[in-house]
């Protein structure tokens, strides 16, 4: 199965007043056709930065791509000109942003915001684009008549649906969903997820789903990549990660969610905090928080090791500690 998107060795830095933040470090990721990949990690792990890099929307006043290729259908997105990127953004690759409250323009009618991408990419007349926008609204379960309204007249869940409709207007090949359900309450969350899944199946879209919720990943994704301190530390098929995780950080993530089958009195959160991307610890970035760290972990930075076909782990002790 061919891959739609192939990221290799992507590094992104942000220059701030207090130093250089290494937000994304040597990320390799590939997304197969019609596949869904979950990108999981704590806040600040570099998930959103990775997605924005795919869109080439990193704010270059502060940010900088220091290395990497992002291959999309034979083109390296990093090398494309702005005008070429504009043809891809919103049409071939589109993004659902994290916070529906601020993602929509407050002074433009909802239907016009949806119609906009259709109008510029399909070169349709405004009237046709508007019909399409109304269809999209109906598709995400909002009565077409409400397109006349402005974002402030919508509830959070409905705004998120509008954002999704906006992202799907031009039937993109790749959808980057950045925490599409985080801002929503649980009942709406499942509705929105069902809708994304349904639309994805119908339109044959590949998806990168960014989340910190492993439950959502289990429901929606085929493959999973776990991100920590700007690196992917474990990647593999859904089953491999959920049933046979090898990285101590992944272990920590699973321990910090309640289980229905096992009896646990207390959840086991991972001690400590995500390291400051301006001062990443040497060796394995996870060693200060790792219960299994040995002296070698403090000096040697682990490479990705394939423990099973398609299952990669970035840990020196991946074959000893959690191996089953």
């Amino acid at each position: 199965m061919g891959s739609v998107l192939e990221i290799s060795d992507l590094c992104v830095e942000f220059h701030t007043q207090n130093g250089v933040a290494h937000a994304v470090n040597h990320v390799d990721l590939s997304i197969g056709e019609k596949r869904s990949v979950g990108l999981v990690g704590e806040t600040g792990a570099g998930k959103t930065t990775t997605a924005l890099s795919i869109m080439q929307l990193i704010d270059l006043r502060h940010g900088k791509y220091t290395s990497g290729r992002i291959d999309f259908r034979g083109d390296d997105l990093m090398k494309l000109k702005d005008t070429q990127l504009q043809k891809i953004r919103g049409k071939e690759i589109s993004m659902i942003f994290q916070d529906p409250m601020t993602t929509l323009n407050p002074v433009i009618k909802v239907q016009d915001q949806i119609a906009e991408s259709y109008r510029i990419h399909e070169k349709d007349s405004p009237a046709e684009a508007l019909i399409r926008a109304k269809d999209m609204l109906e598709m995400v379960g909002i009565p077409a008549g409400r397109g006349e309204e402005y974002p402030h007249q919508f509830s959070g869940g409905m705004k998120q649906r509008v954002v999704i409709a906006m992202a799907l207007t031009c039937n993109p090949q790749l959808l980057l969903a950045d925490e599409p359900t985080t801002a929503l309450d649980v009942t709406i969350q499942s509705q929105v997820l069902d809708m994304i899944n349904d639309l994805k199946d119908r339109l044959g879209t590949s998806m990168l789903l960014i989340t910190h919720d492993l439950g959502i990943v289990a429901e929606t994704c085929d493959e999973v990549a776990i991100m920590y301190a700007g690196e992917i530390i474990e990647a593999g098929a859904l089953r491999q990660i959920f049933k046979d995780f090898r990285h101590p950080y992944t272990d920590g993530l699973f321990n910090s969610i309640p289980s229905l089958t096992k009896k646990t009195h207390r959840l086991m959160p991972i001690p400590g905090l995500m390291p400051d991307p301006k001062q990443l610890p040497g060796g394995c970035h996870f060693h200060p928080r790792c219960p299994h760290a040995v002296d070698e972990c403090k000096v040697a930075h682990p490479e990705m090791t394939e423990v099973e076909k398609g299952h990669l782990v970035r840990c020196l002790r991946c074959t000893e500690v959690l191996s089953r």
């Binding site: 702005d82 504009q86 891809i88 942003f97 601020t102 323009n105 002074v107 906009e116 510029i120």
Partner: peptide
């Protein structure tokens, strides 16, 4: 620097279009 400007860029609008269609009305208010 608002999020909706990024949304506009993500839709494939050119820099000029994001300024004229999305930013100006908000900035003039």
């Amino acid at each position: 620097s608002q999020d909706y400007e990024r949304t506009a860029r993500a839709k494939g609008l050119s820099e000029r279009q994001t300024i004229i269609n999305h930013a100006l009305k908000n900035a003039l208010l």
